[in-house]
Computed example of a mutant assay.
Amino acid sequence: MKEQLLDLAKKRRSIYALGRNVSQSTDDIANLIKENIKWAPTPFNNQTTRAVILFGDKHEQLWDIVAKRLKSEVPTEEAYQKTLAKINGFKSAFGTVMFYTDTDVVHRFENDFALYADNFADWSEQAQGNAQFAVWTSLAENGLGANLQHYNPLIDDEVREAFGIPESWNLRAEMDFGSIEAPAGEKEFMDDANRFKVLK
C-alpha cells in the first residue's frame, strides 16, 4: 500500500513552540493555504469554508484581541497571567489562519435542497475539518508547525470589527503557524479494539 499521505499526516502534530524562522514568503504561504482550502471537499461542492490569513501586525492584533477579551473571563489575576503566557505563545508564531463558515451559503442550500436541510450545518462542519486538516498537513509538509485554537465565539464581535469580517461568516477556529522551535511529544492512541470494527 502507498502511504505518502499517511506519512504526511503523521507529521501533522499540534506544535505549540512556534517561531518566525520561516524561509517561505507570506505570498507563498497564503497561496498554499488558499489552494488547500479550494481543493478540500465540501458537500454538493457548496464551498462554505472561508479563511482570513493574518501576517505581521494583523497576526499580532488578533492575539492582542484574544488577550484583552479573556481578561474579563478568567477568574483571578494569577490564572490570567497563565492564560496570557499561552496566548503570547500563539502571538510568537509567524501567522494565523482564521477559519470561517459562510452561513449564507449554508442557508441557501438548506432552502434549495429541502430534503437534506437538516444536514447542511453539520456538513459545513465536516467541510471545516477537511479544510483544516488539509492546511495543517500541507504546512507540516513544508516544515511549518501549527496548532488549532477555538476562542470563538468569545472574540467574534471584536474580530469582525477589527478585520472587516462579513456578518454571514461564522468563526470556527484559529490556526497559528510558524517555525518549529520544539517538537510535539509522543502521541498516544487508544486500543484499536475499542475504536474500529472490520467486518468481512
Results as ranks from 00 to 15, higher is better:
residue 112 D to Y: 10
residue 58 K to E: 13
residue 56 G to C: 04
residue 152 N to A: 12
residue 47 Q to D: 09
residue 63 W to R: 00
residue 96 T to M: 01
residue 143 G to L: 13
residue 88 N to A: 05
residue 153 P to N: 03
residue 149 Q to M: 10
residue 46 N to Y: 12
residue 127 A to S: 15
residue 106 V to S: 06
residue 159 V to K: 08
residue 134 A to E: 08
residue 29 I to C: 08
residue 66 V to Q: 01
residue 61 Q to A: 14
residue 43 P to H: 10
residue 41 P to Q: 00
residue 133 F to G: 12
residue 54 L to P: 02
residue 159 V to Y: 09
residue 145 G to H: 09
residue 141 E to G: 11
residue 110 E to D: 04
residue 153 P to M: 04
residue 147 N to H: 07
residue 147 N to E: 06
residue 85 A to M: 08
residue 156 D to R: 11
residue 73 E to C: 04
residue 39 W to E: 11
residue 79 A to V: 01
residue 57 D to M: 09
residue 31 N to K: 15
residue 161 E to G: 03
residue 108 R to V: 05
residue 81 Q to I: 04
residue 152 N to Y: 14
residue 62 L to N: 05
residue 84 L to N: 01
residue 64 D to E: 12
residue 103 T to G: 05
residue 120 F to A: 11
residue 102 D to C: 03
residue 143 G to E: 13
residue 111 N to C: 07
residue 158 E to R: 12
residue 114 A to F: 14
residue 151 Y to M: 01
residue 163 F to C: 10
residue 46 N to R: 10
residue 70 L to C: 10
residue 74 V to H: 01
residue 122 D to S: 15
residue 39 W to F: 14
residue 64 D to M: 06
residue 42 T to W: 04
residue 162 A to R: 00
residue 117 A to S: 12
residue 140 A to V: 09
residue 113 F to L: 10
residue 148 L to S: 07
residue 69 R to T: 15
residue 132 Q to N: 11
residue 93 A to W: 02
residue 56 G to R: 00
residue 55 F to D: 09
residue 124 S to L: 09
residue 134 A to F: 10
residue 122 D to W: 10
residue 42 T to P: 05
residue 105 V to G: 00
residue 57 D to H: 07
residue 99 F to E: 00
residue 62 L to A: 05
residue 130 N to A: 15
residue 153 P to R: 00
residue 65 I to K: 00
residue 29 I to L: 15
residue 157 D to R: 13
residue 84 L to R: 04
residue 97 V to G: 06
residue 58 K to S: 11
residue 103 T to V: 13
residue 45 N to E: 08
residue 109 F to G: 00
residue 128 Q to V: 15
residue 84 L to C: 00
residue 36 N to Q: 14
residue 157 D to C: 06
residue 101 T to C: 06
residue 158 E to T: 02
residue 36 N to D: 09
residue 118 D to R: 14
residue 118 D to K: 13
residue 96 T to D: 05
residue 46 N to M: 15
residue 165 I to D: 02
residue 88 N to M: 06
residue 75 P to A: 10
residue 128 Q to P: 02
residue 152 N to I: 02
residue 156 D to K: 09
residue 100 Y to F: 15
residue 89 G to T: 05
residue 72 S to D: 13
residue 59 H to T: 03
residue 124 S to Y: 02
residue 151 Y to F: 15
residue 138 S to G: 03
residue 159 V to S: 04
residue 24 Q to A: 15
residue 139 L to P: 04
residue 130 N to D: 11
residue 74 V to T: 09
residue 158 E to D: 12
residue 77 E to I: 04
residue 36 N to H: 14
residue 79 A to S: 14
residue 152 N to T: 13
residue 72 S to L: 01
residue 145 G to F: 12
residue 95 G to W: 08
residue 140 A to M: 07
residue 96 T to P: 09
residue 129 G to A: 06
residue 37 I to T: 03
residue 165 I to E: 02
residue 43 P to V: 09
residue 37 I to F: 09
residue 55 F to M: 03
residue 89 G to M: 08
residue 45 N to H: 05
residue 136 W to C: 05
residue 100 Y to T: 04
residue 116 Y to F: 10
residue 59 H to D: 01
residue 127 A to L: 04
residue 74 V to N: 02
residue 49 T to C: 11
residue 147 N to A: 06
residue 156 D to C: 05
residue 136 W to H: 02
residue 52 V to A: 06
